[in-house]
Design a protein around this nucleic acid. Structure first.
Lengths: 333, 333
DNA sequence: CAACATTTGGCAATCGCTTGCCATGCCGTC
DNA sequence: GACGGCATGGCAAGCGATTGCCAAATGTTG
């Protein structure tokens, strides 16, 4: 067991010939101590290899200089971007970044929040699975920022699913498709609702029919059932809840000898790793993923410093754009 | 700012009519307090919604009940497995799991270790990029367990690259290949060295020639240069440092009209997400990835409780197996 | 030069919990 | 019936920082 008895403020104070409080202030409140004294203290600290104990600091001050991000599933490449963006932003601000997984479960999510509550200054919740009421309730006790989810009264960062879904519809319409089916993700997923709403509204506008099927697990494995359901529906275009599902669908269709996009077009959401090299390459809605993580942490960081209710919680909506690849084509006939 | 003045041991103690120490022990040292008293205390605690403050606990006891895992790059799907395995094992033991990224930099890695040192009980370092000396030095002050890396005197978990690489060689040899080229990852990567060592030894045994080219960045983007280098070398089989690179190579070869596996065979390592649906599907060395993360945390957890040097640091070697898909075939001619 | 404002540093309390040590009460035992 | 042993609970001293308040030193002003 390495337990090398780290140096403390007191060690530094003694060595520098000042009080512990001065050492503390030299680090955390520079303007409160004389420049010369400060330099001296810092030099001694350096020499002794002193680093403030973050636990002690946090215990006393109430600030942990740490933020946590919770994502449903580590295995979904979609979260790469947000995670990376959040991590970088936090690190840049000298804030410790912590990542946790909720295994797609609202209970796990809640548990983790409760358990980490005292150890972090705030949470970034990506694609939170918790019901609105729970989220709102937790938000009263904790600093929360949502990604890809909106809840009344809470700050959030989302990519523009409404506009993006319209782009999908327009794309399909322009290719002559008269109908589409949305292969939905979990019904508790806010995103699934949003996407469906936008797709069906867009479809109506274009005089297309839209159907929602599902729910399907938003994973590659969910693609089998989803593909079969789509086939039996007779639609010429399917929009999958996300790329994972879309890739699963492509595989299943290939297996069944259905050619994409000749017989059926497939669209996904997220533009994940692999969307460009699956076959056929996937047409999908892309967004500034990394930016969403960055923005979420940004909000968390400013939150502490500004007045709570300057003008409501911040809601960031990031632009999205359709990446057209090979999985969509003219409607058959 | 949510700052709702949480309940403390003292609140519970007062309410339960016992001393704070008893409350503390009711939670952390059950056998030290009478069963009935304990139940009573816990009930009060429950009612008051009391949760021990992990910071205070850690500060006093020196144990944080937290482990951190550091990986070079969140965007490499290879780490899914280990991360998930580690997270699950930790969570199962009621240990908080923390994930950090080192951006493929030894300095960042070291920094993060130093900065998290007081906040965690130990580190799982996946594919650590630090030089041996640095690692060994850090290990004197911190609890470290390595994944996919071995350093004298440190506990580690690796998949069996030696045996696996032999499988690759044998597979290629059986297909009639007389030469192979290894498109190497970063030279500071321990894995790159191991793999090359095993490949060249195996090749020699089978009377094949082996060449090492590179280093190439172990990412899809590195595949372009790697593929071109492979082509000019004239080899009939290429073994890429990892699947990311292999996928990049496949793309480049396709771009150049080189057919795989007819003209050249391609093999990767890791069996990552996407290896099965890229085209052609990738032949690659798979291992029990999740298990490696699990095992690493396991070691970390037992480390505290057992005597330091019962019989040297634990070294776990996990079996690997070759998954043969469509990117390898008979040698041309 | 006196009176007052401003810096600057120190004292000591505090954050919430753990834990070594002691006191008490109860049991069994000779 | 006296005594040793064990189970149980309380006291109080930390863990390593931060911070409100005070005092000394220094600077400013009329």
């Amino acid at each position: 067991m390495p337990t090398p008895k780290r140096t403390t403020v007191y060690d530094v104070a003694r060595e520098a010939g000042v009080a512990a409080s001065t050492v503390s202030r030299a680090f955390s409140n520079p303007r409160r101590v004389n420049g010369a004294t400060r330099r001296h203290v810092l030099e001694i600290a350096e020499r002794l290899g002193y680093h403030p104990n973050p636990l002690a600091t946090a215990l006393q001050s109430g600030h942990t200089a740490t933020v946590a991000m919770l994502v449903p599933d580590i295995a979904n490449p979609h979260f790469f971007g947000p995670i990376r963006g959040a991590e970088r932003r936090a690190t840049a601000a000298d804030i410790t970044f912590m990542l946790g997984f909720t295994e797609e479960s609202a209970d796990t999510e809640r548990d983790k929040i409760e358990r980490l509550a005292r150890s972090v200054d705030g949470f970034v919740l990506a694609s939170s699975r918790m019901p609105e009421a729970t989220t709102a309730e937790l938000a009263r006790e904790h600093n929360l920022v949502l990604i890809d989810r909106q809840v009344e009264g809470l700050p959030s960062v989302v990519v523009d699913n409404a506009a993006g879904s319209r782009q999908i519809v327009d794309h399909l319409a322009s290719l002559g498709h008269r109908s589409l089916v949305y292969l939905s993700g979990p019904h508790i997923s806010w995103l699934a609702g949003e996407r469906w709403r936008a797709l069906s509204a867009g479809a109506e506008e274009r005089g297309m029919t839209a159907t929602r099927l599902g729910p399907f697990p938003p994973q590659v494995a969910g693609g089998g059932a989803a593909a079969d359901a789509a086939l039996v529906s007779g639609a010429t275009a399917v929009v999958a809840h996300n790329d994972l599902l879309a890739i699963g669908i492509l595989r299943r269709l290939a297996e069944r000898g259905v050619s994409v996009p000749e017989q059926i077009s497939v669209v996904g959401y997220d533009d994940i790793f692999g969307a460009d090299f699956c076959v056929p390459a996937l047409t999908t809605l892309a967004g500034p993923q990394e930016e969403s993580g960055r923005a979420a942490v940004e909000i968390l960081l400013t939150k502490g410093s500004t007045r709570p209710s300057d003008d409501g919680p911040r809601r960031v909506v990031l632009p999205s754009h359709l990446v057209i690849r090979d999985s969509t084509g003219p409607a058959p006939e």
